[in-house]
Design a protein around this nucleic acid. Structure first.
Lengths: 232, 232
DNA sequence: CGCTCCGTTGACGCATATCAAAAGCTGTGG
DNA sequence: CCACAGCTTTTGATATGCGTCAACGGAGCG
């Protein structure tokens, strides 16, 4: 059975607020679950029945209109928290983008545990405040930036969030290698654009020698400064 | 001297989590402040030196690009909380839209007080989670909705948030009267549009008998259902 | 009464969406 | 190993919604 002791995110997730005894107690109400790419953990509009910590992988948070338009409202990574504690419904779906491992809790169990452990609630509050700040900054992008600014901003955000350690010596100095966890369509859904516009911006950036595109899911950032300049 | 005992939002703001003694203690570190329309309490990028509760009035949270584009990332009303506790910088400015009364705290004082009072932190967490949900729903609007859907959504949000009690008997049955706390430019900055587009949508809605526009800052919603249908 | 600010209206252009088709990958079965 | 099917992505042609620029109008104020 998986235990918190061996958990990859033991010291980075909100659990870091707890001591050994408390972790033991939390361990009894949580269980690990594996998700395949495309598999959903929570659906938009559902009653809030569970919350979770991400142990491995990348997931998206998304909402949509009735006529099928979709907007990705957040991406969550290892050690991030998922779900809506202390509430009744979840406003957005949660779906795995890569294979993912999550530590799932029944929401009510988690709620009472959290209320009994202020240090945990404090960590959760800090995370929520950070996420709110990040989300508000993204609103500027959605409301006011052009397609080229949006794509540049996306790539910069990605270099900060999923910078691959496996940069081979074959790459030009200063280059940053990215393995995107998302398809072109999903990038479009993050940026509020169409897939065609995203694709055209990628090819233009490649033509301008600002990035390289070794494969569909890979991006090499050749000139990060140029990207920052384009991001507005 | 103003005291929490007579505070208009005593039972709705996060202070509602505290008993009489605790309120007394909080009273000693907070002070009231009046703001004129257009006056800023916090500037984007500032060190986070203060936090506050809104007692009366409406304020905007906004970010902008270097070249002057602006995006309003939130509107705050009576009993809402303002500022970035437990953090170093604030990602957005806070500016009064109407005359406003706020209860201001030094951020460090508030931080230590909050850490010592888990019930207060819990209220703050709930508010922050609610605000995050609201903000994420707004992202769908910014990224995926058309101008007409945006304006309709804005008006619906306003009927929920500032429905005037003073509906005179002169109005058609079912009509809802709104006193907008914002200019056309500010509506545009909330919706990620230009002032001209907002204006055109307003006149169209008036021509379609869905709203009436008695004055610049007033809107009468004649057919809320039609507005909901347009909001997407 | 006239000035100024804000909002409205109109003409026009452009960025991005839409529609359509070709070009790469990826996997499967012969 | 090749052929083919079913994808995602790219590329191209066209359409359109919204932005931009410019002029006008009306409300508030000295």
């Amino acid at each position: 059975m998986a235990s918190c002791d061996t958990c990859l995110v033991r010291n980075r997730a909100i659990c870091a607020a707890l001591d050994a005894d408390e972790i033991g107690a939390l361990n009894t109400i949580g269980r690990q679950r594996l998700l395949e790419p495309g598999e959903s953990l929570i659906w938009e509009g559902d009653d809030s029945v569970l919350v979770a910590n991400v142990i491995e992988g990348v997931l998206k948070l998304s909402t949509g209109t009735e006529d099928g338009r979709e907007q990705i409202v957040g991406m969550v990574f290892a050690s991030d928290f998922i779900g809506r504690p202390f509430g009744t419904t979840t406003g957005h779906g949660v779906t795995a983008l890569t294979e993912a491992k999550v530590c799932v809790f029944n929401r009510r169990d988690f709620d009472s545990f959290a209320r009994a452990h202020p240090a945990l609630e404090h960590k959760l509050l800090q995370r929520t405040l950070d996420e709110l700040d990040r989300t508000r900054r993204w609103m500027l992008l959605l409301g006011r930036k052009s397609a080229s600014e949006k794509v540049a901003s996306f790539l910069i955000e990605m270099t900060d969030r999923v910078a691959s350690p496996g940069c081979s010596s074959l790459m030009p100095p200063g280059a940053i290698h990215l393995d995107l966890p998302v398809s072109r369509q999903q990038i479009a859904d993050v940026l509020g654009l169409t897939i065609e516009t995203v694709s055209r911006q990628f090819t233009r950036l490649k033509a301008d020698r600002i990035i390289d595109l070794p494969s569909r899911r890979e991006v090499v950032v050749l000139d990060r400064a140029a990207l920052v300049a384009e991001a507005g």
